[in-house]
Structures are given as C-alpha cells and as structure tokens.
Design a protein around this nucleic acid. Structure first.
Lengths: 108, 108
DNA sequence: AAAAAATATAAAAATTTTTTGATATATTTT
DNA sequence: AAAATATATCAAAAAATTTTTATATTTTTT
C-alpha cells in the first residue's frame, strides 16, 4: 500500500456523508435508491460519494437488473478495522431521524 | 467522539505532507526548524500542516526557548492505532531522499 | 421498439483547502 | 533596548473538492 493509496483512503473517510454511508451499509448491501430515500440527498450526490468510497476500495457494488447494490468491502484488514471503528463510533448518532425506537432503520 | 471529531481526524490524515510529518515524528519530538530543513518545505507550510495535526489531536507541542518541539500525541487508543498503522505502512518510502543507507534520517 | 426505472456522468457553480509571500509575535542574545 | 532567531498568523492566489442541474446509459417492461 503506497502513500497515495493511504491518502486516498483517508480522503474518502474525511467527509461526514461518506462516514454515514459506511455506517448505513453496516447490516448489508443497499441499492442507491434506498440510500437516497433514507439520507434524503440527491441521487447524483449519493452516487458521487459512493464512487469515492469505491475508488478507495471501501465499498463494492453489484448490479441486479436496473439496480446497483453497494456493500462494505472489508477484504483488507486495515480497511476492515477502519470501517468497524467508524461504525462503532458513530452508530446511532448518524441517523437519529431515520431510526425508530427499537434502533432499526425506518425504510422509506 | 462525535462524527465531526472523526471527520476532523481523517481530514488531518488525508494529505501526504501530514502523513510524512507523522512518520517523521516516529522517533521523538522535533522542532519546526528541523522539520523544515528535512522536508525542504517553507516554514509557513510546515506550521500550517502541524497546526491541522494538532487541532485533530494527533500531535502535541512544547516550547523550549525560541523553539517549539512537536511530537506524536497517541494518548487516545484509536489515534495511536492510526498513527502506528501509517508509520508502518509508509516507513522508508516517505523520505527516501532524506535517509542514508542505514535507514537513519540525514539531519541537515 | 418505445417507455420507464435506476444509476452514472458531465458541466458549471459554490465551497473548502492549500500554498505563497509578507508580517507579527515571542524568546533569547548582544 | 536593539538585534537575531524561531515560529505563528494573515491575506491573497491557486488548487482541489463538493454540490447542483441537466443529460446520458443501462436494463427491464410494455
């Protein structure tokens, strides 16, 4: 892993939207449209940020028909540690308005 | 640790100069003038980046006379892990032109 | 093959970060 | 108290990132 790979990973993590995206994917893959409806952000904005996470090797994608599902890519140990640390630290804080009282995500 | 604290830490790490600064401090504190002469960067630039690292709680400083010495601040476990990971990953790659053949820093 | 749905991409605008050059501040030395 | 040294700060310029709006692409459905 080169310095610029490291910088790319940290750049990807240095944005609140992207940290929320990672936390949102904690429980498995989601399609872009679901993410858009949960975070209430524009679709291009979500795609833009997902793409940065993908370039940094932090998420991976899979097409199913017209939808594209994103999920965490923790195949690398260091990245896995980062992702888990982030999720542990921001869990529940990230989506207060999108969670119900049991702590489950409210899918819109 | 809030989301914005996390973002601040990752922002601080998302720059090659700053990763090099952290690696440079691996073996103990250094004054700004020493860092400037090793990295061959302008003094305001070095101060700027050190300040970002300090704001993120990754380095600390100590004045001694007219000099100010910076050192790693790894009092927090998560930050310590990040710093150690970075150093392990970029060691030797970071300063090829500033190291001698034994791997020691060539102080100018 | 046209329409619809989901997503990506591109261009322009807005925002943030970084660099540079000049100057200010703090401490020590003369 | 003036000069010298080390560092910080500031303002302007440059560069990079993010957001927005519009459009293109891909796949499925009709």
């Amino acid at each position: 892993m080169s310095i610029s790979d490291l910088v790319k990973i940290f750049k990807a993590l240095s944005d609140e939207t992207r940290l929320k995206l990672l936390a949102l994917l904690e429980n498995g893959e989601l399609c872009v449209c679901k993410i858009v409806s949960i975070l209430k952000m524009s679709q291009p904005k979500v795609s833009f940020h997902l793409n940065i996470l993908k370039d940094a090797g932090l998420v991976k994608m899979r097409r199913e028909g017209t939808r594209i599902f994103y999920s965490l890519d923790d195949s690398d140990l260091f990245k896995r540690f980062l992702i888990l640390s982030i999720i542990e630290k921001i869990k529940d804080k990230a989506f207060s308005s999108n969670f119900n009282q049991k702590g489950g995500v409210i899918w819109k």
